[in-house]
């Protein structure tokens, strides 16, 4: 089921058109990338999803609610880290998080929980203005995690961070999906970062959604060949059998796996073959080898 449904969304700021008929959806329990260059409408999209901006036209549903009209119902179930978040500097971290937690109906123990997850425990008694850029970003993540949200919206979560802090934040985001099982929509223009964490993508350019879907499906759509890594007990035997099929374009044998390149339109034939020969070759696991996100974006944009 889709957590986010956007249909034909328009938004302008005066004469500047930020979104022109954007449509996409994000399924539940997915880490999705909202990928596009600066000024493509990513931040506007996220702000409409959280209900702080009003759309000019179109239909937006988050958890089945219109965020502009039923903002409270939506925001009870989501957390958002805004791009360059502004925090009141003169307030202690603990006090700020306590007030925010209270708005979601949680007590002080929730503050400790999110502080532990984001590594903020020893800064709880510090004033916000004394935090470094990296720790401010952690504070942003901590406030977004209050109340164990079902959906996390992250707008350029690593913007303006040094490489070390950037890695730390990415590690945290990865752990959220693994350990907390939330749906995450990350907006960024930095492709390698998104590649590390996402399995679903929404491509946006100049306010138009160019394409969206699971990376596997997008790869099949935009590439003539896709690759699968098969973890197997008898890799050589499997490889020599696989290469005899006309839908297989190439194989590469590794220590205990085989990477099989297959024609995009004939993936089901490979699946049938692997299913039928599961016991013969000792097939343990089949995983999709994703295409480069940057290549996918370029092809999607070129196709419009």
């Amino acid at each position: 089921m889709a957590v986010i449904e956007v249909r034909d969304l328009y938004k302008s700021y005066g004469k500047t058109v930020a979104l022109r008929g954007a449509s996409f959806s994000v399924p539940s329990k997915t880490v999705a990338a909202l990928l596009g260059p600066n000024g493509s409408g990513k931040t506007t999209t996220l702000k409409i999803l959280v209900g702080v901006l009003k759309r000019d036209r179109g239909d937006v549903k988050v958890f089945g609610f219109d965020p502009w009209i039923n903002g409270v119902e939506v925001r009870e179930r989501l957390g958002i880290l805004h791009e360059k978040p502004i925090f009141p500097g003169d307030v202690k971290v603990k006090v700020l998080l306590k007030y925010l937690a209270k708005l979601k109906g949680y007590s002080g123990s929730e503050v400790e929980r999110v502080a532990r997850i984001t590594g903020l425990v020893k800064y709880l008694d510090s004033r916000v203005k004394s935090l470094s850029r990296g720790y401010l970003q952690r504070l942003g993540l901590a406030q977004a995690l209050i109340g164990d949200p079902e959906l996390l919206l992250l707008d350029e979560p690593t913007a303006n961070l040094d490489p070390l802090a950037r890695r730390e934040i990415l590690r945290l985001i990865k752990s959220f999906q693994k350990e907390l099982g939330v749906t995450i929509l990350v907006s960024s223009h930095i492709i390698p970062e998104l590649e590390e964490i996402c399995e679903y993508a929404v491509f946006i350019k100049e306010g138009i959604i160019v394409d969206y879907g699971r990376l596997e499906d997008l790869s099949k759509k935009y590439f003539t060949e896709v690759s699968y890594r098969v973890v197997v007990e008898k890799p050589r035997e499997l490889a020599s059998k696989a290469i005899s099929f006309d839908f297989v374009k190439g194989v590469e044998v590794e220590e205990n796996s085989v990477e099989i390149k297959v024609k995009a339109g004939r993936v089901s034939e490979l699946a049938d073959f692997l299913e039928s020969s599961k016991d013969t070759y000792g097939v343990r696991k089949v995983e999709f080898v994703r295409a480069e996100l940057g290549d996918l974006y370029e092809r999607a944009v070129a196709g419009t």
Binding site: G71, E76, L103
Partner: peptide, 15 residues
């Protein structure tokens, strides 16, 4: 005007 309101309005607090 400076974005401070954005933080609280992103929580279950209506406008």
């Amino acid at each position: 005007s400076t974005g401070g309101a954005l933080l609280f309005l992103s929580f279950p607090l209506s406008r």
